[in-house]
Amino acid sequence: MSTFWRRPLDADRVRPPHGEVLILADRCKGCEFCVEFCPKDVLAMSKDFNRKGYHPPEVVKSGVCMACNLCETICPEFAIFTTTTPESPPAAALPAPVLEGVAP
């Protein structure tokens, strides 16, 4: 029953957007806003240093970004953005999205 509630009725037909995250690592100042607020936990702070000595984020869950653009909008440095890629599987093939907390 709960799966009925949680899964959209048109999930087998509607393809959710699939995004690719692009990081301009040398622009990042390591504030962690993108990592903290990504609703799909796509990002983590990397151990690498950028040219300025900050740790930029890296993609740790590839394939789950839905191009919601939150990272892009919240980044104070214009250092991260997403592009939409067309080849997404139908939603039914993916785990139900878990959107916890705020949708700022």
Partner: peptide, 29 residues
């Protein structure tokens, strides 16, 4: 691929002066 805000910002002046974690850049965005 350019950052989507490129048409609205003077990208030649980026990175800006604001400190890590400062909120001003987000407001500009």
């Amino acid at each position: 691929v350019e950052h989507p805000m490129t048409p609205f910002l003077r990208m030649d002046r980026i990175p800006h002066v604001w400190c890590p974690g400062c909120g001003i850049g987000t407001v500009v965005r």
